[in-house]
Design a binder for these strands. Structure first.
Lengths: 135, 135
DNA sequence: CAAGGAGTTTAGAATTATTCTAAACACTGC
DNA sequence: GCAGTGTTTAGAATAATTCTAAACTCCTTG
């Protein structure tokens, strides 16, 4: 029976996070369906409508913890506008400027050549590509 | 005599902006030397130390106007952290994660192949590449 | 399976970054 | 110079996020 709390509990535990009721509720919203892009506010609104409401502070805490644990990644597209993306595979983003919509596209067809070496004493963490488009 | 207010006045006027004392002071700080990456707060601190202090609101206004006029570009690296970059040529960025330093690198050696076409009804505005590195 | 401690959650305050407001001011064309 | 529109300003307002400290809950141990 997929989609039960047990799945999410196990997944949280595997990530080193205690499976509290709140975190399980958020994980279900985030990971039950396909990939999602959510803001903290939007997720808070969603969970508030559920049987297990969660405070905004906890939504922020959990999203940050999920990100640090590698369950999510964060995409900052504009000052004061950041999305959490449940797709953690290699991929990049389209950002549709007037409305602020964000769409994934897979990175397997994309090749980036000629990047300079990281500055001395640093190692590569991630390459973000944001393709900004307008109507 | 390069670097006089007149140069900056002309440049602002050419961009469709009235060359007020405040905007000229900011333009001098931004464009007199080589390329720079500044936050609004940092630029405000700089200009406050000068003979022609400028309010923080004006620093924000001016940076936004300069960006809209194409004199600057804005790079958002983390929630609540955005830099204004006086380099408006094609280029990309290194972001050094723990300290928040930002460095340019030219895009002439970099090629990005295989990007999907923009979604229907949109056209490409800009491609941002941020290479995130850690110590 | 009860108890206790560490880790979590919460409401609300605090912080940070940025924008707004309305009154005072200054650049430009006449 | 004068007027009129655009600009600047201090301070308040807004928005996104984090902090605080008290209450709570998960998990381990006995």
């Amino acid at each position: 029976m997929p989609g039960t709390s047990l799945d999410f509990s196990a997944r949280l535990r595997a990530a080193g996070l205690r499976p509290t009721r709140q975190r399980v509720a958020l994980a279900r919203l985030l990971f039950a369906g396909g990939h999602r892009h959510v803001t903290a506010e939007a997720l808070h609104a969603e969970v508030k409508a559920s049987r297990m409401p969660v405070s905004l502070a906890t939504v922020y805490n959990s999203l940050n913890q999920f990100r640090d644990a590698g369950l999510l990644c964060e995409v900052v597209v504009a000052p004061g506008r950041s999305y959490f993306d449940t797709n953690i595979g290699h991929h990049h983003h389209f950002f549709i400027e007037p409305d602020g919509e964000l769409h994934d596209f897979p990175s397997d067809k994309v090749t980036i050549a000629g990047l300079p070496a990281p500055p001395k004493g640093t190692r590569l963490a991630r390459v973000d590509v944001i393709v900004r488009v307008r109507r």
